[in-house]
Design a protein around this nucleic acid. Structure first.
Lengths: 214, 214
DNA sequence: CATGAAATGAGAGTAGCTCTCAAAATATTG
DNA sequence: CAATATTTTGAGAGCTACTCTCATTTCATG
């Protein structure tokens, strides 16, 4: 099985779904082919040097088709199918569990699933995030979308208005902090232990900065 | 005095600086002319409908010149000269003041200065941030730059490594939360009181979500 | 005023992205 | 199986942000 195929989703692999009709199956395959071609080309020549035309050529489709499947070039590299899954996992947590504890739990789950799939792609994305501004911008955008999704969960857990300022700030500040973990991880060439970093980050956001140690 | 001119900086107005040589003065004027033209056109026809060519035409410069002054179209609208000033203000705070208290203080200062200058431009920027994806992306980028600048200040205040994960997460989570305040403010058509919102946001980030009120 | 340096304008070129329309592939129905 | 309807694709034209180069103009300086 192609690693790219496996990378599409951490929990379930949509390409081996029950019979979907030829059309649907072909569409999924085309999507994955385009993505695989993109990753390969970027590995070979870098992000900027890789044009849509090249991607189309290697994926054996027309440039039009590439844009039909992905709205922008960045979207070919960055696709988040994780959010809804994490959200569901979050809702499945016991309602009386402390909020931050639930976050810790699903983050452990998510990182495990992620790294089990295709660590190289994960690292490549993070690396593109710190080197290519356009990719980074797209990451921030999806970060704020994640924040928006979190509102509902936070709101119902805390018994607050999901669209109230407090919940919004809480959600955004959380995902912002998590984003920074990802950046720091990539900037340090993935040498550090990601789960441990996440724990430290959550500690900071929960209890504030540690007291100074001289 | 042109309102656009005043909007360039909240603390000092660089265009009426001591004799700078004709060249320098002309450069500043051109910058402001381009920005004013851009704002005017966007007001008339919206962001996307406004092309660089139109901007150049109204500002009476060539398109090349526009790009010489601003790297991207978004940068014409969004220019942060505030960061360094806020950073300096932050350093001037007493070293034993609680960290969050300092933040509250400079935020009060910044909002006051901002709104005193040209509220319409401020609102327009925030509005573009929630309507134009490219502008929003640029805002996120400068948000993370602000976060990066904050690291040093936070680090020295807390006696921690400015590049350590804890400080990074703290900074990013803070600016993320503040960014969300700006978004919420704009989404609610600027009807709410910005300083009050900032207070509430800082409360959340300092003490967590308020206990539920049934 | 003359010489050197910097700013500008003109123009060509690239690439991402949109739109349209006809051809090809697939689904559906008699 | 044949015929028709629907979807997907490819080809190509077109727009715009953005880059680069080079000649011309504008300002600074001795």
């Amino acid at each position: 099985m192609n690693p790219m195929t496996a990378a599409r989703s951490p929990f379930t692999s949509p390409s081996d779904s029950p019979r979907l009709g030829l059309r649907e199956r072909k569409k999924i395959k085309t999507r994955e082919t385009i993505r695989a071609a993109t990753y390969a080309l970027i590995r070979e020549q870098g992000y900027d040097a890789t044009t849509i035309e090249q991607i189309a050529e290697r994926a054996e489709v027309s440039p039009s088709t590439v844009f039909r499947y992905f709205p922008t070039k960045e979207d070919i590299v960055l696709t988040d199918e994780y959010d809804p899954l994490m959200l569901e996992e979050l809702r499945n947590r016991p309602a009386d569990e402390p909020w931050m504890e639930s976050v810790r739990h699903i983050l452990r789950l998510a990182t495990d699933a992620l790294m089990a799939e295709d660590p190289e792609v994960i690292r490549m994305r993070a690396h593109l995030g710190i080197t290519v501004p356009a990719v980074r911008a797209r990451m921030y955008e999806s970060m704020s979308q994640t924040g928006r999704m979190l509102r509902a969960a936070i709101g119902e857990r805390a018994g607050l208005d999901p669209d109230g300022l407090e919940v919004r700030v809480c959600a955004m500040s959380l995902v912002g902090g998590l984003m920074e973990v990802n950046m720091a991880w990539a900037e340090n060439d993935f040498k550090d232990d990601l789960p441990a970093m996440l724990e430290r980050a959550l500690d900071v956001m929960e209890h504030g900065l540690p007291t100074e140690k001289p």
